[in-house]
Nucleic acid binder design. Structure first.
Length: 412
DNA sequence: AAACCGGGGGG
DNA sequence: CCCCCAGGTTT
């Protein structure tokens, strides 16, 4: 039971700008709240969603229909219904288009798609082809690894699935190059089965619509997104819905400057309500950076002066006055003893300073009642400074805050 | 230069 | 299970 219109569009999966006729139609359409009588809980009497099979990939019940109804109404008027993989829309062509669209714009994919299916019109033909010719057909699209996955998957289908793409979610997702989202997209579009998808466009739509904060790479956020994706997926017209939500993300709910006035969901969109469309989805967290650690030595003499050291010309904070450092505790003591007679050390609260390319874990070590060593005390790069003099020095921010918040000397 | 992304693979 | 990477193009 595939859905009604018998045709459907498939937008680009990610990064895509679709250049179809957004302009006037959209602006007109959205202003009519296409809401139907609101059948809150229609087809699903399944009670608490039954997420178990396929490890929670599947769909239990469509809980919310306002979303799907508005989206489908929009899609009927403004969606794209003329893409080559829609006519005919069989599993092989849907699959091929999905893989191609994972990496390239619709406009670019179309001629490759047509060339590919002309040369290899069926899954059997693909499976029987040699890898070189598959790669030749792929040539220019990039991401050739996916072409190899495609080829291998076709051969696996011949060996294990009677030459067809399996309709079973787990079997489908077990094929190389097909993960949870792509499996859902294929099942929904080729077979009309109710499975959610979650590609980049859908993530953007859902984070905005629900005001979900946090990058999708965070586990909780992704969980939340899949939940919402599942919740909104209707049992009827699943194929159209799947295409529609991707269309919306690709053309209206675009990353920068979304066309909210053309959006059928504007009235219910949290991000729009709260003026957060520019902040959502949350920007990618800074890439992983290494953490280094250092001990910072605070030598303080009886008059409250501290020993500062000018940093060398290389590396961070070059030329700034900073604290002597050491990598480990032993080294810290040796270093301290070079500059003063010391008795004991107190470790202060460690903290982290973040640079663009690494984070620095700083463990301050306070040597109080230090008696400056005579001869080597002051020179161009090594001086005892009164705390009161610090404001006039160039100090790294963490060093400055550390020194301005020193604890009182312990009473001897 | 960096962000982008679904899936594979490694830890 | 969780984290990281590959890969070409866009911002």
């Amino acid at each position: 039971m595939v859905e009604s219109t018998g045709q459907s569009a498939r937008p680009a999966t990610f990064r895509t700008t679709r250049q179809w006729t957004i302009a006037d139609g959209h602006a007109r359409s959205q202003r009519r709240p296409h809401r139907r009588p609101e059948r809150a809980d229609r087809q699903c009497r399944t009670g608490p969603r039954e997420h178990r099979r396929a490890g929670g990939k599947t769909c239990g019940a469509a809980a919310v229909t306002v979303f799907a109804d508005a989206l489908l109404a929009w899609f009927d008027r403004h969606g794209r219904h003329d893409l080559p993989w829609q006519h005919p829309r069989d599993a092989y062509r849907v699959w091929l288009s999905e893989i191609m669209l994972q990496q390239t714009q619709v406009a670019t994919v179309i001629p490759y798609f047509q060339r590919f299916v002309a040369a290899l019109p069926s899954l059997h033909a693909l499976a029987a082809a040699d890898e070189d010719s598959v790669l030749a057909l792929w040539s220019g699209l990039g991401y050739y690894r996916r072409a190899r996955f495609l080829h291998r998957a076709a051969q696996l289908c011949v060996e294990q699935h009677q030459g067809e793409l399996p309709r079973d979610f787990d079997a489908l997702a077990a094929l190389p190059g097909i993960g949870r989202s792509t499996a859902g997209a294929i099942l929904a579009q080729a077979y009309g089965l109710r499975y959610p998808i979650l590609d980049g466009n859908v993530k953007r739509v859902l984070t905005r619509f629900h005001g979900i904060v946090g990058h999708p790479s965070e586990r909780e956020v992704e969980k939340q997104l899949w939940l919402r994706a599942d919740e909104h997926t209707p049992a009827a017209r699943t194929a159209d819905y799947t295409q529609a939500i991707m269309d919306l993300g690709a053309t209206v709910c675009v990353r920068t400057r979304p066309l909210c006035d053309a959006c059928p969901m504007q009235a219910h969109c949290i991000a729009h309500r709260d003026h957060l469309t520019a902040q959502l989805p949350t920007a990618k967290p800074g890439k992983r950076i290494p953490t280094r650690s250092t001990l910072m030595l605070i030598l303080r003499d009886g008059e409250g002066r501290v020993l500062l050291q000018r940093r060398g010309p290389q590396g961070v904070w070059s030329g700034l006055w900073s604290l002597p450092e050491s990598a480990d505790s032993d080294g810290a003591w040796r270093e301290a003893q070079r500059h003063a007679q010391i008795e004991d050390a107190r470790s202060l609260t460690p903290f982290v300073h973040v640079f663009s390319h690494y984070r620095l874990q700083i463990q301050p070590l306070l040597f109080d009642h230090a008696a400056p060593a005579r001869a080597i005390a002051d020179n161009a790069d090594l001086r005892w400074y009164a705390i009161a003099d610090l404001p006039s020095l160039g100090l790294p921010a963490p060093v400055r805050s550390l020194l301005t918040a020193l604890p009182e000397p312990a009473v001897p």
